[in-house]
Design a protein around this nucleic acid. Structure first.
Lengths: 246, 246
DNA sequence: AGAGCCATTAATGTATCCAATCTCAACACC
DNA sequence: GGTGTTGAGATTGGATACATTAATGGCTCT
């Protein structure tokens, strides 16, 4: 078999998730099953499976006999997610340190640190290097979560990414110092993990994630249009329209 | 919540969730769509919607063209969930203290504390009082989560309850001192929240939840059969069969 | 003219049917 | 005797048809 077998429902789920996170379907907008099934080229049955999945995932709202709507995410929601993600990833550090990272794990983290160092060596973050940077960042966080040996932690952090712009794939890249400092956090976290200083690693990670959230929210709050220009992440994110926070 | 109208799919979801958490469907067991739809008295269509929902909720495993299976929960999984729930509820305390609990909120917590005090006043936890106790416990935790004004926190903690025996509705009740001490935690958490001592409240809550997890895991590890005898919670939980941890 | 009611319409929810795929056992072959 | 293959049966995935419910627009009545 060439590709992993995929059902139409799975495909629809992935397609819809992209459409929602990319902002093609606007928050609050009603989702018409007939339209969408025609658009995606399948019947309503697999589409409805996808809608049910995405509703449980938190990307859609559902009311019986009234259909599905794209969930509205306010700045408040984004803040909420960072308040959750920060403690979950900090907990990952705490556990990883307690268990003790394996040499393989530490080697992997070191390699990721070097990849980041190399990208930043020029003194600027070139747009061409953004995909590599993003990849490094995602890998770093996932490696630590994996090191916590907690099968559910990854699931929970993953759900966190179901909110537009909260993914660690999304990076504000216009301020080089902030990027540099962020990678410095990576160094310190790795060092703390190596020395099995769990609380220390957790504290750095907490701040690492929390500050990223504060920064994003601050930017979105003052000038949403400009902010999304400096985001790199999910395709089409720049088309995303923010719901006004009250 | 009053469900004025519920679709067959919603009903099936609720029924299946109960069946899984109660252990009527055994972990690892394959779920036959025809069989179940007949059992529940509906067609496969709404049932499949329910299956998709519960899969995303984490109660079922799914593989394309191979159908659904009841997810297997090891002791390791239960430990994992407590590692998550402890930091989430601690974070709720931290945020609630930072925001400052409203008088209404504090009054509600005080009322819950008194309800607990009254139940324990006799010096024992009578079986007849268990439902009241459980209700008080659930309300206490939910009130604090609500006080954090974080719309997603409740959702995430709720997902935590999708693992058998992790719900705060489940209580080990055979050791009066432990119950007493647990309620003493409630008092101290409330006091810390009143004084807006966030870190202090968070620390107590973390320990409060973590210890409950340790206790449960210890009991299940040493003598699963005896342990479930002392659990009170979801109906039929005593029929639940634990997957052997390796 | 405005508000409320009713009928029509459109969309959702469910059942049934058909196609695709996996399971499993019997069988041939090494 | 063990292993690979193949075909029938069972089970899942998807499409379509039908039932049910909410939304809409027009109508009447005040």
């Amino acid at each position: 078999m060439i590709v992993s077998k995929h059902t139409a429902a799975d495909g629809a789920t992935a397609a819809l998730r992209e459409m929602i996170l990319a902002g093609q379907l606007k928050p609050g907008e009603r989702v018409h099953q007939d339209h969408l099934s025609e658009l995606l080229g399948l019947s309503r049955t697999p589409l409805r499976t996808a809608l049910a999945t995405l509703t449980t995932d938190g990307l859609l709202d559902y009311e019986a006999n009234c259909g599905y709507r794209v969930r509205e995410f306010s700045l408040d929601t984004i803040r909420s997610v960072f308040e959750i993600r920060s403690v979950l990833e900090a907990q990952a550090c705490r556990i990883a340190a307690r268990l003790g990272c394996s040499d393989d794990m530490l080697d992997k983290l070191d390699a990721l640190l070097k990849r980041g160092d190399d990208i930043l060596a020029s003194g600027e973050l070139k747009p061409a290097a953004l995909p590599d940077w993003r990849r490094m960042n995602v890998d770093f966080h996932e490696t630590i979560i994996h090191a916590a040996n907690n099968p559910l932690l990854g699931e929970f952090v993953g759900r966190t990414h179901n909110v537009p712009m909260v993914s660690d794939r999304v990076i504000l890249w216009d301020d080089f110092y902030i990027i540099q400092r962020s990678h410095d956090d990576h160094h310190r976290i790795t060092r703390a993990l190596r020395h099995r200083e769990g609380e220390r690693a957790a504290a750095i990670m907490n701040e690492h994630v929390s500050f990223a959230g504060d920064l994003l929210i601050d930017r979105l709050g003052t000038d949403p249009e400009a902010a999304v220009q400096h985001l790199i992440g999910a395709a089409g994110v720049s088309k995303f329209k923010m719901k006004k926070a009250k």
